[in-house]
Write a protein that binds this DNA or RNA. Structure first.
Lengths: 335, 335
DNA sequence: CTGAAAGCGCTTACAG
DNA sequence: CTGAAAGCGCTTACAG
């Protein structure tokens, strides 16, 4: 194995010079262009590559950031990851991804990842990770940014869910819908304000229309639950003429329930989904969605983590604005 | 920061004893149960956690394995990843995930990951990664297992695509279909045998039926291409009565094209897709698929990588069998 | 502008 | 059964 020392000998300089040439950091070393060239040549000739472990040990910094994502195959989160990756990479770091299912408070993975020298910090999604795991992380004093709305305790970054749902709902109201259902999403414990429900009501207030409060179904994100909720809504005396899907991932279940009931989209029922992913225009009919600046949220979170790693404090941030309606074919005026 | 030395002092033993107690490896150290308990107590009291960088530097082993996956949100690959994760984790290692898009032959990420001391080895998918990146990896002498059929050069593991497509095709033949199209998949360069097309023909041969060779459309996996291919097939003089989707991810595009043409599934056209993912029963009608032992393939690949890391050679493996038809509602006898 | 030396925290022969 | 010592490969003050 080629070491820095070997390169130094070959170039006829001391290890310190090679180290400076590699890192770019000057430190106390100021070298001539000729020397730098000689070093680079020696590196090329020997095929030298820096030993990451040795560097980490010495600098007490790994340059690795770990993102723990809810579910790898969740297409919504893919955008966030891309934002994180771009930022981490342009900062010269490496992003390490793990599935949240693997990470429990006393899992092997958490222990290993949070061991010093493996990762400088974590990006996690609170909703799916569980507060206990995040607390465990905190107890280990590992810098950690939560991808979710502020909760007053952890540094956090997220998009404006309230504005997003408002955007979706306003679109339906503008089309003339009045009986609008909000389907999916978690039933929050009393006291924790539900930003999505707030956004739903914002839209009605803005339009000067009384909200159809009986049409809120926070039944989670499991497909059977979504299907049942929609089926039940359709069976009521005054069924909704439009549905806001709290998350694009549940839209297929909404379509499914509608098809089972023999209803057409958008002739009989309009559907808008929160969050935009590329593949929804493959649904039939193509789904109207609300696009959020998820990639920007990821980048912002990565930046906040860097701040944290460098020892500064950070609070909770919600990215303002950025909600944008992507009109496709699943919404129309009520019959 | 608490070091191993601190723990040793507290427990009244030498660092060597603490090291042995942690790693479980006895080495030359044989310690009494009382000593071991004292050490464990000291670890708990001090909150000591091993420094991964130091250990890696010393042992020249990181315990980290990197998987470079085609596309994070590809639900098919999710199963493979799970298999990898299970195996790596039960071997006491850590799995690091990266998106193939990030990894190009001279990308920052490749350089950093392949730097010594960051990762012991790689699991990569050839199809999407590009041979040049794999060659770069090889030039760096990083142990590397390819998730794909054997190509004679790289150690590799994959499921039996030929058997999988045969299973799907046989199902349609058994239902009475004769005009069967195979849609999607890559157009391989001449000379490289296409295991999927072979499987397609196997099924016809087995059924004693002449294959409908004019119905093979290896147009890749892009949704517009799939849609166009299906639309064109439907416009021919003798359109297919059934379609095998080369990959489940293109099934929505097939449904889309069928819906556009005003055809019903399965009354007018039957559809089977290769690979099974949980969400396909949310499609309307629920999609019949072929399930493959993808998780097992992932585990097997991880095991092979460990072998490679330990310095032994390895060849190409195809997991035999395991193809299983999952019948849902998208297939029926021809009208 | 460059070199010699110390030391990051661990593990592993080696000596007792 | 346990301790003292060397050294993994790097970076960083420090001295020149």
């Amino acid at each position: 194995m080629v070491t820095l020392r070997d390169v130094a000998e070959r170039a006829g300089v001391s290890p310190a010079v090679v180290s400076a040439a590699i890192s770019g950091r000057s430190g106390n070393v100021r070298m001539s262009e000729a020397t730098r060239q000689r070093v680079n040549e020696a590196i090329r000739e020997t095929g030298y590559r820096v030993n990451h472990a040795a560097r980490s040990l010495r600098t007490a910094r790994t340059g690795v950031v770990s993102a723990v994502v809810p579910k790898l195959s969740n297409p919504v989160f893919e955008h966030v990851i891309r934002g994180i990756q771009d930022q981490v990479s342009s900062d010269g770091g490496v992003l390490m991804l793990a599935d949240a299912e693997w990470l429990t408070p006393d899992s092997h993975l958490l222990t290993r990842l949070a061991a010093r020298g493996m990762t400088d910090g974590f990006l996690v999604r609170r909703a799916q990770l569980g507060d206990d795991t995040i607390d465990a992380l905190e107890a280990m004093q590992v810098p950690c940014v939560v991808l979710a709305g502020p909760d007053g305790t952890h540094p956090s970054v997220w998009v404006d869910d309230r504005a997003g749902i408002r955007c979706a709902t306003s679109h339906l109201l503008a089309l003339g819908h009045r009986r609008i259902a909000l389907v999916g999403g978690l039933q929050l414990p009393a006291g924790r304000s539900d930003s999505r429900l707030l956004g739903f009501h914002d839209a009605f207030a803005e339009a000067g229309v009384a909200a159809s409060a009986d049409l809120h179904r926070p039944v989670g994100y499991a497909h059977p639950d979504i299907r049942r909720a929609v089926t039940e809504l359709l069976a009521t005396e005054q069924p909704p003429t439009a549905i806001v899907a709290d998350n694009v991932t549940v839209a297929p279940a909404v379509y499914f329930a509608l098809a089972e009931a023999g209803l057409r989209v958008p002739e009989d029922v309009s559907v808008v989904a929160y969050h935009d992913i590329a593949t929804v225009d493959m649904m039939w009919p193509p789904l109207t969605t609300v696009r959020m600046p998820l990639r920007e949220a990821g980048a912002q979170a990565a930046r906040m983590l860097t701040t944290l790693i460098e020892g500064e404090r950070a609070g909770g941030t919600i990215l303002e604005g950025g909600a944008e309606l992507v009109a496709r074919s699943s919404t129309a005026p009520p019959a």
